[in-house]
Amino acid sequence: MARLWLLIALCIVCAQAYADKKVYRWKDQNGNWVYSDTPRKGAKEVKINTNFLTMPATDTSVLTSSQSPSGQAYKAAIIAPNHKQTLRDNTGSVYVSGQITPRFAKDFTVQLYLNGKPTGPKQHTVTFALRNVPRGEHSLQLMVFNGKNEIVTKSDETIFYLHKASVNN
């Protein structure tokens, strides 16, 4: 059934492209509908109403920015964990997600800082997995760098608290 609708949609698109041509349909030996611009014996002409095929214009200005990436005002934010959130993980694993707006430029890199120290090398994604984080209060901050290794923007500090089960329990 899905193939039938795909075929119908393809025929409609073809019909719109060749508005002066006619489209015919017939059943093949397997009982499937066949659409073509060439009539066959037993084929019937399909009347196509192209008024329903018009689509409103779409604003594509975001795809062609006249402003260079370095001229834009970028913002970085840590979206997980939340500010002042308490996390409970006995292994000390903390998963951090960030967000860069507007769209992350191709040559940008991001580095995560835990308590003012980098957690690893710069990377091209804004998701991080930290391991063996000790219990207590910690701060996180994202820094975004351009291709020249200059800081483009940095996030506000996010504070989180990591709880672990006590060794005595």
Rank of each mutant, 00 (worst) to 15 (best):
residue 131 R to M: 05
residue 29 Q to H: 10
residue 82 N to V: 09
residue 35 Y to C: 07
residue 84 K to D: 08
residue 62 V to Q: 09
residue 13 V to L: 08
residue 15 A to H: 06
residue 30 N to T: 12
residue 68 S to Y: 08
residue 38 T to Q: 11
residue 104 F to Q: 15
residue 4 L to E: 00
residue 157 E to W: 00
residue 95 Y to N: 04
residue 90 N to L: 11
residue 60 T to P: 05
residue 130 L to G: 15
residue 103 R to L: 13
residue 143 M to R: 03
residue 169 N to I: 00
residue 119 T to P: 06
residue 52 F to K: 10
residue 136 G to P: 08
residue 107 D to N: 12
residue 126 V to G: 04
residue 144 V to E: 15
residue 100 I to Q: 14
residue 30 N to H: 13
residue 116 G to I: 02
residue 60 T to V: 12
residue 128 F to K: 00
residue 169 N to Q: 01
residue 45 E to D: 12
residue 127 T to Y: 04
residue 141 Q to S: 06
residue 115 N to E: 02
residue 44 K to D: 10
residue 95 Y to S: 09
residue 56 P to A: 12
residue 53 L to T: 09
residue 157 E to N: 05
residue 105 A to F: 08
residue 152 V to A: 01
residue 104 F to E: 09
residue 124 H to M: 13
residue 13 V to K: 00
residue 126 V to D: 12
residue 166 S to H: 01
residue 122 K to V: 07
residue 132 N to F: 11
residue 20 D to F: 11
residue 78 I to W: 03
residue 122 K to S: 07
residue 30 N to K: 14
residue 14 C to D: 00
residue 149 N to V: 03
residue 143 M to C: 01
residue 64 T to N: 13
residue 136 G to L: 02
residue 6 L to H: 11
residue 31 G to D: 10
residue 74 Y to P: 13
residue 127 T to S: 13
residue 41 K to C: 09
residue 119 T to Q: 02
residue 5 W to F: 01
residue 113 Y to F: 11
residue 27 K to L: 09
residue 105 A to L: 06
residue 28 D to C: 12
residue 106 K to M: 12
residue 62 V to F: 09
residue 109 T to M: 13
residue 16 Q to T: 05
residue 159 I to E: 14
residue 86 T to N: 15
residue 45 E to Q: 15
residue 125 T to Y: 02
residue 5 W to H: 02
residue 165 A to Y: 08
residue 76 A to Y: 05
residue 27 K to I: 09
residue 159 I to Q: 00
residue 122 K to F: 11
residue 13 V to M: 05
residue 162 L to V: 02
residue 149 N to E: 03
residue 129 A to D: 06
residue 12 I to V: 11
residue 116 G to S: 00
residue 137 E to L: 04
residue 16 Q to V: 04
residue 1 M to K: 02
residue 66 S to D: 08
residue 70 S to M: 07
residue 90 N to I: 05
residue 36 S to H: 00
residue 8 I to C: 05
residue 25 R to W: 13
residue 124 H to D: 12
residue 104 F to D: 08
residue 13 V to S: 03
residue 61 S to N: 03
residue 68 S to C: 06
residue 115 N to M: 13
residue 55 M to N: 14
residue 129 A to L: 11
residue 37 D to N: 02
residue 80 A to R: 04
residue 77 A to P: 01
residue 135 R to W: 10
residue 51 N to I: 10
residue 133 V to S: 12
residue 115 N to F: 04
residue 17 A to Y: 01
residue 68 S to L: 05
residue 50 T to Q: 15
residue 102 P to L: 11
residue 72 Q to K: 14
residue 53 L to K: 12
residue 45 E to M: 14
residue 12 I to K: 02
residue 121 P to L: 15
residue 26 W to Q: 10
residue 117 K to I: 08
residue 68 S to I: 07
residue 110 V to D: 06
residue 162 L to D: 00
residue 82 N to I: 07
residue 119 T to V: 06
residue 140 L to F: 00
residue 88 R to K: 14
residue 65 S to W: 12
residue 108 F to C: 01
residue 65 S to Y: 13
residue 1 M to P: 06
residue 66 S to L: 14
residue 36 S to G: 10
residue 153 T to S: 01
residue 122 K to C: 11
residue 27 K to W: 01
residue 151 I to D: 00
residue 59 D to N: 15
residue 116 G to L: 02
residue 161 Y to N: 05
residue 30 N to S: 10
residue 113 Y to M: 08
residue 41 K to W: 09
residue 147 G to E: 10
residue 13 V to Y: 10
residue 39 P to T: 07
residue 1 M to D: 09
residue 94 V to K: 07
residue 107 D to M: 06
residue 116 G to N: 03
residue 150 E to M: 04
residue 91 T to E: 14
